[in-house]
Structure formats: C-alpha cells, structure tokens
Design a protein around this nucleic acid. Structure first.
Lengths: 199, 199
DNA sequence: CGAATTATATACCGATCGGTATAAAAAGTT
DNA sequence: AACTTTTTATACCGATCGGTATATAATTCG
C-alpha cells in the first residue's frame, strides 16, 4: 500500500556507484547524486538513509558485481592461476569501457577530511580483508607445495595486491587494458608454472 | 620596506604540504591550512595566491625535497640499480616516520569533483612525466644491452611505476617499510643482475 | 615626525555542503 | 467516498566552503 516508488532502486544505486567511483566519496555531492539518479533528496534519504549509507550500499554492489572475480579466482586449483586471475580481473574491471577507470575501493576515499574518516577506514579494512583472504589461499598452496620456493604466502598476497593497486592508479591515469596486461605479464614472470601438486 | 612578515614562508609551506599529503587537495580546508600554518587567510592569499597556488607550490616543494631520489636514481650506471633505487626511494618516502604515509602525488587528487579537475590533471601529468623519464633511461639501457631480454623500455618503466604506485596505496593502508621492501624484492626477482655493459 | 608601504586581524561575502520539515500526490483498504 | 500509508516536490536549515573588503599595526624612507 502507499504511493508506489517512481524509480528503480537498483538503477539508482548503479548510478551512485559510478559517481562515487569516478569522483570519490567527498568529491561527489548530493546534487551530483540526485541529478544523476534522477531523484530528489527526500527520496534518496528515504531509501538509502544518508550519504554514508548510500556509499556503503554502492560499495556492496561494487563488490558483488565488479569484484566477484576475486573469490572465484581463489577457487582455482593452482596458486599461480589464482594470482593471474586476480591480476587480470582487477585490470579488466579498472579499464572497462563502460564505467569509470580505476577502483572504487581506492578512488572512494584514499586521502580525505575527518568527515570521511569512517568511509576511509572501511575501505582500508576492505583492502586488508582481500589481502588476508588471498594470503590464506596461498597458505594452503604452500602446504600443497604449490608456491615458488623461498616465498611466504602473505608476502606473495601483499605482492599481488600491490600490483593490483598499482594498476588501479595506472588506469585512473589513463593506461589502457593492454598496457596493464603487459605489466601483469612482467609481474608474474618470476612465478614459474609448476608441476602438479606433489603432496 | 613595509611591515615585516611574521611567519616563515618555508615552514608554512612545509605544513601545507603535509596537510595536503595526508588529507588530499579537497579534503584539506582553508581552515585546516591557516590553523596548521599559524597564519590568517589574508596572509595565505597574499603569499600563495589561492588554494590552488598553494597546492602547486607545496607539490613543487614535495618534488624537490621528497622525490629528489628519483632523478638521482636515473644516474645509476646499471638499469637494474636505477629500478631498485627508485622502488626503495618511493617506499622510503611513503613510510617515513615523520610525515604522512603514501604519496602526495596520488593522495592529492586521485578522484575528485570538477572543482579540483585542474589539480587532478596536473598530478596525472606528473606521473606520466616520471614514467616517461624512466622510459627514456631504459631506452638508453636497451642500447647498452643493459635490459633483461624480451622487455621493452617503456613497459619496464610502467612496471616500475606501477609497483611504486601500488606501494603508495599499501603505505596509505598501514603497511610498514619492511613489508614494502619484501614486495620490492619480489618485483625485482625476474630482473637478473647483469654483467658489465657489452656494447 | 610624517608619508609610504606591506602585513596583519576582523568581519564579512555568496555559494554550496549534507540534511530535513512540510505538505501535496498517489496508491491500497474499508 | 473517506482513511491510511508511502513517496513525492518544494522550500528551507545551520554549517562550512573558498575568497575578500576594510581597517589597523608595524616597518623603512624622507
């Protein structure tokens, strides 16, 4: 019952996500959001709570729709394939023709005022979580004899995430996908294709 | 003649640089700046023009005092030493105990509103310039037979800059220097120490 | 001592920030 | 039709944004 909503919540959230992705949390004003989403401020606040709530919902959508490759990659049987799928997955997302360049998790609030400190903290934790998940996957690989000699799992995880964060800056600076792929090729060069697990 | 200035311009600029470094261009308000620098707005505008002028002067100071290792590194006789000095130089600067974490050139304006578009563009050009300078150095190395086989100079330059930009995000996320050093060790693993130039 | 010059402090400017109060509009329920 | 519920549109809120006008304080020159 009640008056029916005149806009699609999912479409509006998609637009908000793209705006935050392109302009960052603080760089995106409520006017940017309401004009882009085609709704008024009371509608926005009615559905999403406030700007911070909207960002968090947009981030959740981003993780669900753009970062889904990450947890898929963790399922690869060989650690090197995990690493490569993650690197190329990030590069693909960062250079998609539709949608902004770079990464929402980094563009969102890398350096900001105290007003955005909570968002910044949330994004940092997001990065740590990804790195930790990858480290755990590499711990398994170490037990399986599936890591290159002389490397710690969590160091490898940090390495892979560092490359991906670097490509995010590169993409935000105008680098195209093929350029990032060449970077990734170099980053993986030290990591030999390994024989089948021998545990 | 005239009333003498009551503050040290260099000290004030140093403070402004650190504020922009930590909070970004848009995240740093004039109140942050005047309170931090210990001067009033008319004084700030009298000496530095406006917020954008102040940022550009702070960036210039940053390049001069924090990025000086970069052009020093280009003078290394061996390309691998150039790469390593640059990587460790960035990591050192990004994790200095005094001063903010990360990189002013990235924290300053990665994603922002239209109001900061000019600053953003300037920082992107800054990154391109560094990459180009390194690429030129590697071109020379290629002629000298000083590059690992199968690598293009400008791809190598992008690779090195991507790692450094990645460590900037890592540092901004709390990673310490030793963690970044381990990343750098891995990043350079594919690049063998080469015999003396044979041209 | 003036006069000229520069820097300071205070108070203010219009614009925009995120957020909301109020009331009308559009639906279902009875 | 009347009542209830939800969403809409409009207008507004105090706070802060970057930037400046005005006047006073502090110096050198004559």
């Amino acid at each position: 019952m009640g008056r029916p909503r005149e806009f699609d919540v999912d479409d509006a959230l998609e637009t908000a996500m793209e705006l935050f992705w392109r302009k960052g949390y603080e760089g995106t004003s409520l006017t940017d959001l309401t004009e882009g989403m085609g709704i008024t401020k009371p509608s926005l606040y009615g559905v999403f709570g406030n700007k911070e709530g909207l960002f968090l919902k947009a981030l959740e959508r981003y993780e669900r729709t753009k970062m889904n490759f990450f947890h898929e990659a963790l399922k690869e049987p060989k650690a090197r394939d995990v690493a490569e799928k993650i690197l190329r997955g990030f590069a693909d997302s960062q250079t998609a023709e539709t949608g902004p360049s770079g990464c929402l998790g980094i563009n969102g609030a890398l350096a900001c005022s105290e007003a955005a400190a909570e968002i910044q903290k949330c994004l940092i934790e997001n990065r740590h979580r990804g790195e930790r998940d990858l480290g755990k996957r590499f711990e398994r690989a170490a037990k399986e004899g599936d890591l290159p000699a002389g490397h710690e799992p969590y160091d490898l995880a940090r390495y892979i995430m560092t490359i991906s964060q670097g490509t995010a800056i590169q993409a935000a600076s105008g680098a195209d996908r093929s350029a990032l792929y060449r970077v990734i090729d170099m980053a993986l060069q030290f990591w030999p294709e390994m024989a089948a697990s021998q545990n």
